[in-house]
Nucleic acid binder design. Structure first.
Lengths: 239, 239
DNA sequence: TCACTCATCTGGTCTATACCAATATGAGAT
DNA sequence: ATCTCATATTGGTATAGACCAGATGAGTGA
């Protein structure tokens, strides 16, 4: 006989999932407090939290530091194979994008960058950090590294809106080849705070290495997306 | 003195991470039991488990149902833009691949399939489930749907090793275009059991829709990868 | 009106304990 | 040797209670 005693945290999951499916709870709505849910379902906070974390892992709900749990809004569709800018494809999907520059400075390549960008240790690089989101909700944090050798004076260009636009328009350089490296990981404290997520939150890390027509690396990006905010689409064609 | 008011589950994380980094623990080695770790670090099981779950989210360790926690072996590199088969690219990476057929049957397209494959409701389709892994460790579970209309008699072909090989060799049909859809989610009970993971385990879901030279959909796949077993690489070229 | 203060609410972390279910283990029977 | 079965071990789930830290909102005073 496989009569299993039902798992109690599962009832939290089904209860809340139904609320969401039925429409009692809509995107960005606040869930009842953990203590209230526990009382309503006659269980303890530990168990309730177990259920909430499962829904979080499924991307159905998210939490805002000590403010409560909320229903996750629609994901953003991102297609790295299309030549289109964040601000544009988010608008296209009916959401209001924002982009915030966190840091911009000149550095020299350390061991990690040299290896990743296939350049010499110590080569001058422009580093750019930025945070992007939709409808006031941050969705990804990005570190960008640009080679000054290939893009002289790039530090002083207006990079807020789109780096790739500047590269194309001001340097007449096309992105000829892009290597993507995608891995699931978790956010460190700094990234988590920017993305308004708890430390350790599951993220999708996308590394992008871009080459020009001559096969030179021009740009290296590392993006950390909230896992609940992204749906990746890639179109591949034989050639 | 290291009297820290910092979180105590973090000490579990750093302690074990150091063991792994130093090489005291190697891939597939078993960690001490939760009770033993708790005792050693003078904390409780709940806290220890909290730390273990964080390491699990980072992909550093995995658990085998009630047997214990283990160090995660190397990830598999998978490049969907390369025309190469699982059995081959896993071997290429120095691991021993396996592939197990779970199910094979003829069905007709339901609403979900019809929508996903852009075909009519009720069109005959061959469904194939299989589990694949490396070094005896399952890494992904896959559902494949093939159109009998385009590939007549495909049900009786030897599909164990590679579906795409059969399509190419026996039907002289090339995969001309592939649409990928990638999302992070979590495993349901059935998928989790096959992948030897706890229910709700974070997974990477890859949907692949393949077209032939004439623009017809020939195949639809849904893969569920253990998040700790996969590193995705995609090469994009302008054309 | 505006800025500040403080009680209150919320989630974040932790202790201590308990029982269950699947797995490993080792002693005894064959 | 091999099989069988009871037992110990391990993780999985849950209860009950506690304190902390950040966010909020109502009330207060300038």
């Amino acid at each position: 006989m496989t009569i299993r005693k039902s798992v109690s945290s599962a009832s939290v999951v089904t209860y809340l999932r139904n609320c969401i499916k039925k429409g009692d709870l809509n995107p960005d709505d606040k869930l009842p407090s953990e203590r209230e849910i526990s009382e309503r379902l006659k269980t303890t906070r530990v168990t309730t939290r177990e259920g909430l974390k499962q829904l979080e892992a499924q991307g159905l709900i998210y939490r805002s530091n000590r403010r409560g749990w909320f229903v996750t809004p629609e994901r953003i569709n991102y297609d790295p194979s299309r030549a289109i800018y964040f601000m544009d494809y988010v608008s296209e999907q009916g959401q209001i994008p924002f982009s915030r520059e966190i840091l911009k400075r000149k550095i020299v390549a350390d061991a990690f960058l040299a290896e990743a960008m296939k350049i010499d240790l110590g080569e001058p690089v422009v580093e750019l950090h930025r945070l992007r989101g939709a409808n006031n909700r941050p969705v990804y944090f990005e570190r960008i590294y640009l080679r000054e050798a290939i893009l002289p004076g790039v530090f002083d260009k207006p990079l807020e809106r789109s780096v790739s636009r500047v590269v194309r328009d001001e340097y007449q350089t096309d992105y000829d080849k892009v290597d993507l490296n995608i891995i699931v990981g978790s956010l460190d404290e700094y990234e988590a705070e920017l993305l308004q997520a708890p430390a350790g939150y599951t993220s999708i890390e996308i590394q992008r290495l871009s080459y020009d027509q001559d096969g030179h690396v021009i740009e290296f990006d590392v993006e950390h997306w909230r896992h609940d905010a992204l749906q990746l689409k890639v179109n591949l064609s034989a050639h």
